[in-house]
């Protein structure tokens, strides 16, 4: 990493950190409590953006997996691995915050509802991608198998959603298309702001993860060449 790149990454990290503190302030101080559910509804400002980022990562996973299989350029595999890991992390956050809200609102920790179930399945699929990478004897094989699994996971999650939706559904839907926006203006601002912060966070994590991977690859290649020269 050059020092110029380094500076930009540092600046972005600082920016995201500040933005996150602003987000906490907005959620706890600025935004009014929701009438029916009270303060617990505030989890929505993190839960929903986290869910959005999860699905964004899955989309990125699919695109980079296909591109990797096509071009066999390591760069795409790094993006694919990074989006699997980051997607898995945000998916975990969604799965943890969801039940906390559900316990307060519905009185149960878990229900086999459409989106919850889909998210759980998605978590398992992403974990499977990482597991296969870990088991593979070499990086190239791991990249190929994980890319195939990534494509399968991304396509499957659509069918899972459709299937579970018909199976059972009771998730609260706040935004319905074609309806007037039901949120108070402060709520709407905060919500949009939180989405923005999470997007920036996602970008930062992707950059960091991909950089780490690229450096690791270079280090490994260099180390292998050195042992080759010595022997």
């Amino acid at each position: 990493m050059t020092s110029g790149q380094n500076r930009w990454t540092l600046a972005l990290t600082a920016l995201v950190l500040i933005a996150m503190f602003v987000a906490i302030w907005m959620v706890f101080q600025y935004v009014p409590n929701e009438r029916v559910m009270g303060p617990v509804q505030k989890i929505f400002y993190f839960h929903v953006p986290a869910a959005m980022i999860t699905f964004l990562s899955v989309f990125l996973l699919m695109a980079s997996s296909i591109t990797y299989l096509w071009t066999r350029n390591q760069r795409w595999d790094r993006i694919s691995l990074a989006s699997t890991e980051i997607g898995l992390m945000f998916c975990t956050l969604v799965l943890v915050t969801g039940p906390i809200w559900a316990k307060a609102a519905w009185g149960v920790w878990w229900t086999w509802e459409a989106r919850l179930t889909t998210t759980l399945i998605l978590w398992l699929l992403l974990a499977g991608c990482l597991m296969v990478r870990g088991y593979a004897q070499n990086q190239d094989l791991g990249a190929r198998l994980a890319s195939v699994l990534g494509v399968i996971a991304a396509l499957d999650v659509v069918i899972v959603y459709k299937a579970v939706h018909w199976w059972r559904g009771q998730h609260p839907i706040v935004f319905k298309s074609g309806e007037k926006n039901p949120l108070a203006p402060e709520m709407y601002t905060t919500f949009m702001y939180c989405i923005g912060v999470f997007m920036a966070l996602f970008l930062l994590m992707m950059i960091l993860r991909v950089t780490v991977l690229a450096l690791e690859n270079r280090t490994q290649a260099l180390a292998e060449r050195r042992t080759g020269e010595l022997s």
Binding site: L93, W101, A104
Partner: peptide
């Protein structure tokens, strides 16, 4: 609940 949720995040 809210407190724990944010901590976890």
């Amino acid at each position: 609940f809210l407190f724990w949720a944010y901590n976890v995040i």
